[in-house]
């Protein structure tokens, strides 16, 4: 007779074999609790980031400089809402309820990407966000399309298809400003100065200080480490900045032929991790505003949810009476 313990042991073996063979794990398959927990945390944070990420850009929808820009920005922000929803639905397949996730975001318990705790004082910030923040998100997300958890991987494929428009529209805004008047070029450069370091930090702590990486790599949730992704990002962005005549605000940035296992890459300056941790812990320029905006939206939406529920109940009652 097999004991419970032996049974769990063989299930874990089966799970690990699937992971090793690059097979996907689906919602009803056995998975170790730690795998489930890691995914719920990661997908939840990811979903919240998409949702909170609408706020800095939403700030400029009514003030976009042309109708074309306004339409693009509206479409982009709407996409981010969609991304949040794809991801919430992926997290729900792991047994986490939508209401729980919503409440965790509203109470401040759940984390979201720190990058959205920075302000967007000028139109150029919208360009910088699309180019750099969505650019960094793409670097992060492309390998997640091959993540071992099926619903997460499928959500990421959908998201990645939509992201490339986001980055292109941002870069186009920067390009247009950079080709404009001195004042416009200056505005673009200042936005790049503001967003560069926070974007570089988006990949998370350096590998030496990152606690979650090892398990996540073994389980094929993560395919590259934070520093590997950061390097890819820097290497991609530097020539794009040069192309439009903007300067990356890092005096230590230089070509280093030893990087990327000898194929070469850009060496960059020291990252201010104190700032990173400060913002994560709630002390960023916009943390309070972001949370307050989400709480306000939830509270002001109460009557809509109430009305929809009442309407559904009434219709159901009418349907039953007719039967």
């Amino acid at each position: 007779m097999t004991t419970e313990l032996q049974k769990t042991g063989s299930l874990i073996k089966e799970f690990e074999a699937k992971i090793d063979q690059d097979e996907k794990i689906e919602p009803k398959d056995f998975m170790p609790e730690a795998y489930r927990k890691t995914l719920i945390r990661q997908i939840g944070q990811h979903a919240h980031s998409e949702v909170v990420g609408m706020l800095p850009e939403g700030n400029w929808i009514t003030r976009a400089p042309t109708l074309k820009r306004k339409l693009s920005l509206l479409a982009k922000v709407q996409d981010e809402a969609g991304h949040g929803l794809y991801l919430y639905c992926a997290a729900e397949t792991l047994g986490k309820s939508r209401m729980d996730m919503t409440q965790e975001l509203l109470s401040g318990k759940a984390k979201y990407s720190s990058i959205f705790n920075y302000p967007t004082p000028t139109w150029a910030d919208i360009g910088a966000i699309g180019w750099l923040v969505d650019g960094a998100a793409i670097m992060n997300q492309i390998p997640l399309c091959r993540c071992s958890y099926g619903p997460y991987a499928r959500a990421m494929i959908r998201i990645c298809k939509e992201e490339s428009f986001h980055q292109r529209q941002g870069y186009e805004i920067m390009l247009t400003l950079a080709k404009g008047t001195e004042a416009q070029k200056d505005m673009a450069q200042r936005a790049l100065n503001r967003w560069w370091w926070p974007s570089v930090m988006m990949f998370g702590p350096s590998d030496a200080d990152s606690t979650n990486t090892e398990d996540s790599v073994r389980w094929k949730i993560k395919r590259y480490t934070n520093d590997e992704l950061r390097q890819k990002f820097v290497d991609a962005i530097v020539p794009q900045a040069k192309k439009i005549g903007l300067t990356i605000p890092d005096r230590d940035l230089k070509w280093d032929k030893k990087r990327n296992k000898g194929t070469g890459g850009y060496a960059y300056g020291k990252i201010d991790w104190d700032e990173f941790w400060r913002v994560i812990k709630g002390d960023g320029p916009m943390n309070n505003e972001r949370l307050a905006a989400k709480q306000r939206a939830w509270n002001e939406g109460t009557w809509v949810r109430d009305a929809a529920r009442e309407h559904a109940l009434k219709k159901q009652a009418a349907l039953q009476a007719a039967e």
């Binding site: 639905c89 929809a308 309407h311 219709k315």
Partner: peptide
């Protein structure tokens, strides 16, 4: 199958499905 949505009734479910999964 492409995902899921939350909605209180079927009309809203279709509307929401369209907004979330068929923007392009």
């Amino acid at each position: 199958h492409c995902g899921s949505v939350h909605a209180s009734d079927r009309e809203l479910a279709i509307l929401s499905a369209r907004n979330v999964y068929a923007r392009r």
